[in-house]
Amino acid sequence: MIINHPLLGPRDSQEFTYLGDASLIDRPDWQAEDAVDRFYDYLYERENPAGEHRELWFHEQGDRSWLVVTRNTLTHEITNVELARDVARARGRGK
């Protein structure tokens, strides 16, 4: 596959390492009342969509950016690639 890196353009997916669902960005609050349940859901409860999937890829043999790649699991069509750091900030993550 080819991943169109937002900074470096098209790169062979062989240069990347796959992690999984981009929802791993949304790490729960450790001080929440039901923190254990929330962490359990965060870590183990995943959608397995037949279709569009947002997922985390690490450009390990490249610029070491984590990317959020929107990929269709049926066709492998990739419709969007973003820097994970930008996505994380947009989802309210900071310090």
Binding site: L7, D63, R64
Partner: peptide
């Protein structure tokens, strides 16, 4: 910029990652 290298005199630098 990303994907590029510059040099002058003794110094050269190439981009390795965002801000790096």
């Amino acid at each position: 910029e990303p994907g590029r290298m510059e040099s002058k005199g003794d110094w050269a630098a190439f981009w390795t990652g965002p801000g790096q």
